[in-house]
Structures are given as C-alpha cells and as structure tokens.
C-alpha cells in the first residue's frame, strides 16, 4: 500500500503544474453511458443565440492566478496558494482545472476529504477532458488511501483506468 500511496503522491505533485484551462470542445460522448435509444438521437440544440456558459477559454487572468498559486504551493505556502485559487474559482467557476488545482493544494494540506470532494467537483465539469479526469481519479484514489479507505481507493483506480481505456479506444 505504501508504494501505491507514494505513486499517487507523485501523480498528485505533477497535477498542480497543470494550467487552469481545460477546454471542453463538444458534447460528451457516450463514455460509460448506456446508449439512450437504438437509433442515434441528436441532442436537442440549444437555441442558436443562446450564450454558452463560461466556457473557460484559458482566461489569462486565470492562468496568471494559477501560475502564482503553483509557485506559492511549491514554496510550501499552501494557504496562500489556496487563496489564489479561490480567487481563480471566482473568475472562472466553470474551469475544471482550477478546481483540480485547489484539490491538489488541499491534498498537500493533508485535508484529504476536501481534496476528494474538490476533485469530484472538477470531474463534474471536465466531461471532455480525459487527461484531467484521469488525474482527478488518481487524486481521489490517493486521498481515499490516506483516509484509510482502501476499497474506495481501488474503486477510484478502476475509474481512472476506465478513463484511460476510453482514451486508447479512440
């Protein structure tokens, strides 16, 4: 178990380097979802003029805050990193990368329960970003491991691999 934890920690450490700009591009595929009906059904279109919600466009403001947070986190200033990421959340609440970074900081603060929930929140927003989802599941696995939830950690690992498989199937 120790080695798994260490592996996870490595993965997690890598995760904070991620820039806060996941770019969802289209509607989610049918990953892991039972097909809704036999005939392929188009998603109903939203009215053409409808504004899409804040699709993170790699906001420069967010990039700046995330970069600052990353530096702070690396310097061991986790509260400051968290504060900067909370600011980034306010600027781009739909950006799954920001939520993930906050999850990583909470992990580093050894607040594993919060880290797990934040990673789940990130997953909720990261439908199209498999790489991000993989990292979130890795983080969730590590967080559960740290909380002594071995079964939960294994389940998270399974989910992580499932995301990877979808990827290689593409």
């Amino acid at each position: 178990m120790v080695s798994v934890t260490r592996l996870m920690a490595v993965l997690v450490l890598g995760a904070v380097a991620l820039a806060g700009c996941a770019t969802p591009t289209g509607p989610s595929g049918d990953d892991g979802v039972e097909p809704a009906a036999e005939e392929p059904e188009p998603r109903s279109d939203d009215a053409a003029g409808a504004q899409e919600p804040d699709k993170p466009k790699g906001q420069p403001a967010v990039r700046e805050l995330v970069a600052e947070a990353e530096a702070a986190s690396r310097a061991g200033e986790q509260p400051r990193a968290a504060q900067l990421l909370e600011r980034a959340v306010r600027v781009a609440p739909r950006d799954p990368g920001v939520w993930q970074n906050l999850a990583v900081v909470r992990y580093r603060q050894q607040r594993y329960g919060e880290a797990e929930t934040l990673a789940q929140r990130s997953n909720r927003l990261a439908e199209e970003d498999r790489e991000l989802r993989r990292r979130n599941w890795a983080l969730i696995a590590a967080a559960r491991d740290q909380q002594g939830d071995a079964a939960g950690a294994r389940e998270a690992q399974r989910r992580r691999k499932a995301v990877t498989k979808q990827d290689s199937a593409l």
Binding site: V33, A36, A37, D46, A50, E52, P53, R94, N123, E127
Partner: peptide
C-alpha cells in the same frame, strides 16, 4: 446573467419519453 449549463454530468443522457405512459 450567466446562463445555466445544459451539459449533463457523466452518466446522464437524453431519452425520448411518451408523456402519457412514461415509456420510451
């Protein structure tokens, strides 16, 4: 106003349902 997202979470998909019977 920021519109609400129409994007369903992972594991949710649209289905056509008959209003009277609740069947597909």
């Amino acid at each position: 106003l920021q519109p609400r997202s129409a994007e369903p979470p992972e594991g949710v998909a649209p289905v056509w349902i008959d209003g009277a019977t609740g069947k597909r």
